[in-house]
């Protein structure tokens, strides 16, 4: 991980200088400018050489913008819809309707909780079957009302627990995928933090898939891969590298359509700027998708998913 201490010291100096200027009216703005430039330079240097394992840490950073707070910054007038209409309401997978620019949209997002009590209720952002059934309900609503669907992905994975299995979590995820892939409206996903396995793709198999610069999207956690393949948990950093889970590598693989830059040092250093960048990216893609006829949209989506990985399975001659 980058040496945050050096950055912190410089940050404190900058803050101190600002105070002196404000309080004393001292003419130190030139010094301030120099110092701020040095701070930016240091941040850029430190974060230019992030490893994939560093990005895993940033994606999981406790102060990373996510959940309801971020959705409310990106969209206007978010109105939450509760319950799967089948007997449950999972706080770890939420959704509703909102405005994005001058467009009404349906919204889905993983939630990890703001307070310790909420965090416990959300099981660290790992949804139960009822969460995915609520997602299906909101997807269908989007289809009926012709609302584009915007999906904010941030989960370590679906909850691996007895109650999840008893409620057929596998079937709930599969239903989500089936509904999402045939939805007759534009669908947009952005991976905010962790895009963990089946619990993520259930709401991420969209017409466009974007990632924040330091988000991760992976078939298994680096720790899980380390345990299964390396047989030692200390191999997680190597596993992170091998899994190609970073936005940059997934962009190169053609899995992701766009990478949204984060403030130097990570999204948590400037949630407002992150939300603004996100909003602009979403608006741009939404406008492109909205110009397509439904048949065209569905044909493009079908071809995208029907053909995924096709060039990675090569014909064997002879």
């Amino acid at each position: 991980m980058p040496d945050e201490r050096a950055i912190r010291i410089l940050e404190e100096k900058v803050a101190e200088l600002r105070r002196m200027i404000e309080e004393g009216g001292l003419e130190l703005s030139q010094e301030l400018e120099v110092l701020e430039q040095r701070l930016q330079q240091l941040r850029r240097e430190q974060y230019a050489k992030l490893s994939d394992w560093d990005r895993v840490q940033l994606a999981r950073h406790p102060e990373r913008p996510r959940g309801l707070a971020l959705v409310q910054k990106v969209c206007d007038d978010f109105y939450e819809l509760r319950g799967d209409r089948l007997g449950g309401d999972d706080p770890a997978l939420r959704g509703g309707v909102a405005r994005l620019g001058d467009r009404p949209v349906a919204v889905l997002f993983h939630e990890r909780g703001a307070t310790p009590a909420e965090q416990r209720a959300c099981r660290g952002g790992m949804p139960l079957p009822t969460g995915y059934r609520k997602a299906v309900r909101i997807m269908r609503l989007a289809g009926r009302l012709r609302l584009p669907l915007v999906s904010f992905v941030d989960t370590p994975g679906a909850y691996p627990g007895v109650e999840a299995e008893a409620g057929n979590i596998a079937g709930a995820i599969a239903d989500c995928l089936a509904t999402l892939l045939t939805l007759p409206v534009p669908t947009l996903a952005v991976i905010l933090g962790e895009g963990g396995s089946g619990g993520a793709i259930a709401i991420a198999a969209c017409d466009r898939v974007l990632m924040l610069e330091n988000a991760t999207y992976t078939v298994i956690s680096p720790e899980g891969a380390a345990a299964i393949l390396w047989k030692e948990s200390s191999a997680a950093p190597q596993a992170a590298q091998a899994l190609a889970l970073s936005a940059a590598r997934l962009r190169k693989l053609g899995v992701v359509d766009g990478v949204i830059p984060e403030p130097v040092g990570g999204a948590h250093l400037d949630p407002q700027a992150t939300a603004q960048a996100l909003r602009e990216a979403l608006l741009g893609h939404l406008e492109e998708l909205a110009s397509l006829a439904v048949e065209e949209l569905l044909a493009l989506r079908y071809s995208r998913y029907r053909n995924v990985g096709i060039r990675d399975a090569k014909a064997k001659t002879g």
Binding site: S197, I201, T218, I220, A225, L243, L245, L253, V255, G309
Partner: peptide
């Protein structure tokens, strides 16, 4: 899903469901 092909394996879930 096959771990060794990363997200490309994960996306086969969407592929098979689409078909």
């Amino acid at each position: 899903a096959r771990v060794q092909e990363g997200v490309l394996s994960l996306l086969q879930m969407a592929k098979t469901v689409a078909v």
